[in-house]
């Protein structure tokens, strides 16, 4: 029913208390949090640092702008609506196409302009923000998913979470939506978490509901075949999020766009517990290894990525 804490310690598992005190508390400056907690700020910062991210279409900041929203949406066919201060994927609507006057969400549901207006109004009032503070709505480009994940994800968005410590990617996981997770990529809702080898981007190990799986539960495609294209470029993108925000311990959520390659979706200042289960080992050994490095020797993202691809290469794949 439960596992012995000594076993967890031997596997180098990072617990929530240890993460909060020894890594977030020590390496993440509190005043930098708004940069990641507000998706709009993250996006603007990413554009400034030329970190690839889905293109921002427009922002809704005031309730009165909502009445004219149809004009702003007129030019767009598919788009994503996100609350700037939302967390855990709450309040994100992905509109894949239009059907006459209606909009079709990624789940297939048909919604009206009025639904979008109400959703935006709720978002502005702070329904999805922490503590209910007033919020902003971001409308951004729809991501055209790379077909390398065809058959690996059910209804939803496969994204890659990379934990970046002091600029070094230390662990990566691919999250695949399933029927059980209702198209969402949250592991505790039933998404499949696939641990990825830092050297190759190939599958190390995969879990659903904490149990090992070898194929996607809905599409039955073998997870062994996963091979993330431009893996080094993806890691470099993640690594640059550290330079861009100054956060020492950060999780980068990255998607692969068919045309534009890896794009940063959002950043998370408190990542890294479930990813350990997906990988089958703890974060602590990697984190301690990076802590002991002489960081001046690895000034650029490329050098850091090359280092971890050598140092943290897995011994065996799935």
């Amino acid at each position: 029913m439960i596992i012995s804490p000594f076993k967890l310690k031997r596997m180098g598992m990072l617990g929530m208390n240890g993460r909060n005190r020894d890594f977030i508390g020590r390496y993440n400056d509190r005043r930098l949090y708004p940069l990641v907690d507000n998706k709009l700020k993250t996006k603007l910062l990413a554009q400034e640092h030329e970190v690839a991210t889905p293109q921002l279409k427009f922002v809704v900041k005031e309730q009165h702008e909502i009445s004219q929203i149809d004009q702003s949406l007129a030019k767009l066919n598919g788009f994503a609506i996100k609350p700037a201060k939302g967390s855990g994927g709450k309040g994100i609507w992905v509109i894949v196409r239009r059907e006459g006057k209606d909009f079709i969400k990624s789940s297939g549901a048909k919604i009206t302009l009025e639904d979008i207006r109400r959703h935006m109004s709720n978002t502005l009032a702070g329904l999805y923000s922490l503590g209910g503070v007033s919020d902003e709505v971001i409308v951004e480009d729809l991501i055209e998913f790379d077909d390398c994940f065809d058959g690996f994800s059910f209804e939803g968005v496969p994204d890659i979470r990379v934990v970046v410590f002091r600029g070094f990617p230390v662990m990566a996981m691919l999250r695949l939506a399933t029927h059980a997770s209702d198209g969402k990529a949250n592991l505790h809702q039933g998404a499949v978490g696939v641990g990825l080898d830092l050297a190759t981007g190939r599958c190390l190990n995969a879990v659903q509901f904490g149990k090992p799986v070898y194929e996607h539960p809905d599409t039955k495609r073998s997870l062994k075949e996963i091979d993330v294209p431009d893996w080094r470029g993806l890691l470099c993108l993640a690594s640059r999020c550290h330079d861009m925000t100054g956060l020492g311990y950060v999780g980068a959520d990255i998607v692969l766009d068919a045309k534009r390659g890896p794009e940063l979706l959002e950043l998370n200042a408190r990542p890294g517990l479930a990813i350990q289960v997906a990988n089958g080992f703890g974060l602590l050994p990697h984190l301690r290894h990076i802590e002991s490095l002489d960081h001046k020797r690895y000034p650029s993202a490329e050098e850091r990525v090359d280092y971890v691809m050598r140092a943290f290469a897995a011994k065996e794949l799935l």
Binding site: I2, I3, M11, K211
Partner: peptide, 12 residues
């Protein structure tokens, strides 16, 4: 967390 991470048993 001892419960949350109990599935790590298989990797030990």
């Amino acid at each position: 967390e001892l419960r949350r991470f109990r599935s790590m048993e298989q990797f030990d």
